Amino acid sequence: MKIIKIILSLLVTTSLLANAHGDKSKEQGLFKGADTPAAKVVVAFHLALKTGDKKTARSLLADDVTIYEGGRVERSANEYAHHHMLSDMKYLAAVDSKILEHQVTVLGDTAISASRTHTVGTYKGKDRDYQGMETMVLEKQGGEWKIKHIHWSH
C-alpha cells in the first residue's frame, strides 16, 4: 500500500511540475532544479496540504522543523500538525495557487527551495489575490529528504 501511495505521489508531482512550467522559453531561468528529489518532496508537501493528506504532509517534515509564518514560529512537526496544519489545509483547499517561480539548489545533504506563487480565491468570505513567497531548507536524513525549515510570507 505504501508503494502505491509513493508511486501515485510521484505521478501527481511530475504532472504538477510539467503543468507549472507553461511556456518554457518565456520562463527559462525561473524553474531550476525542479527535477531533483528534494524539489519533488516540496511539491509532494504542497500537494498533501492542498488535498488534506495530513499523514503524508507530516511525514515529509523533519521532527525538529521550524516554520515561520505571519510573525509566528512553530518549532516541531508535531506542533505544526496539531495546530496550524489543519487550518492551512482548509485554506489551500479553498484557493488556487499558481507557481510563478521555483528554484531548488542542492548542496550535498542540504537543499534550498525558493518559490513565488500567485494565489486567488475566497476564504471565509474574504477575497484573496496576492503573491506569496516561500523558502524551504531540506536535509537528507536516513537517505530521505526532509523539510527542516519553512518561511512563508506574502
Score class of each variant (00 low, 15 high):
Phe31Met: 04
Phe31Leu: 09
Phe31Ala: 08
Phe31Pro: 04
Phe31Tyr: 07
Lys32Val: 12
Gly33Tyr: 05
Gly33His: 07
Ala34Pro: 03
Ala34Phe: 09
Ala34His: 10
Ala34Met: 09
Ala34Glu: 10
Asp35Glu: 11
Asp35His: 14
Asp35Tyr: 10
Asp35Gln: 05
Thr36His: 10
Pro37Ile: 12
Ala38Asn: 03
Ala38Cys: 07
Ala38Tyr: 05
Ala39Trp: 00
Ala39Gly: 00
Ala39Leu: 01
Lys40Ile: 04
Lys40Ser: 02
Val41Asp: 05
Val41Leu: 04
Val42Lys: 01
Val42His: 01
Val42Gln: 01
Val43Trp: 02
Val43Ser: 04
Val43Leu: 03
Ala44Asp: 01
Ala44Glu: 00
Ala44Trp: 03
Ala44His: 00
Ala44Tyr: 04
Ala44Thr: 04
Phe45Asn: 05
Phe45Ala: 00
His46Gln: 08
His46Ala: 11
His46Thr: 06
Leu47Phe: 14
Leu47Ile: 10
Ala48Asn: 05
Ala48Gln: 05
Leu49Glu: 10
Leu49Val: 13
Leu49Gly: 03
Leu49Asn: 06
Lys50Phe: 06
Lys50Val: 09
Lys50Pro: 06
Lys50Tyr: 08
Thr51Arg: 14
Thr51Tyr: 13
Thr51Phe: 14
Gly52Ile: 07
Gly52Leu: 10
Gly52Asp: 05
Gly52Lys: 07
Asp53Phe: 08
Asp53Glu: 09
Lys54Gly: 08
Lys54Val: 09
Lys54Phe: 13
Lys54His: 11
Lys55Ser: 12
Lys55Pro: 11
Thr56Lys: 09
Thr56Val: 11
Thr56Asp: 07
Ala57Tyr: 02
Ala57Asn: 02
Ala57His: 04
Ala57Cys: 05
Ala57Lys: 03
Ala57Glu: 07
Ala57Ser: 05
Ala57Phe: 04
Arg58Lys: 12
Arg58Ala: 11
Arg58Phe: 12
Arg58Gln: 14
Arg58Val: 06
Ser59His: 02
Ser59Lys: 02
Ser59Arg: 09
Leu60Thr: 07
Leu60Asn: 06
Leu60Met: 13
Leu60Ala: 01
Leu60His: 00
Leu61Ala: 09
Leu61Phe: 14
Leu61Ser: 09
Leu61Asp: 10
Leu61Gln: 03
Ala62Pro: 06
Ala62Val: 11
Ala62Asn: 09
Asp63Gln: 15
Asp63Lys: 15
Asp63Trp: 08
Asp63Phe: 11
Asp64Pro: 09
Asp64Gly: 13
Asp64Asn: 15
Val65Pro: 08
Val65His: 00
Val65Met: 10
Thr66Gln: 12
Thr66Met: 15
Thr66Ala: 15
Thr66Arg: 14
Thr66Lys: 14
Thr66Leu: 14
Thr66Phe: 13
Thr66Ser: 15
Ile67Gln: 07
Tyr68Phe: 15
Tyr68Gly: 13
Tyr68Glu: 12
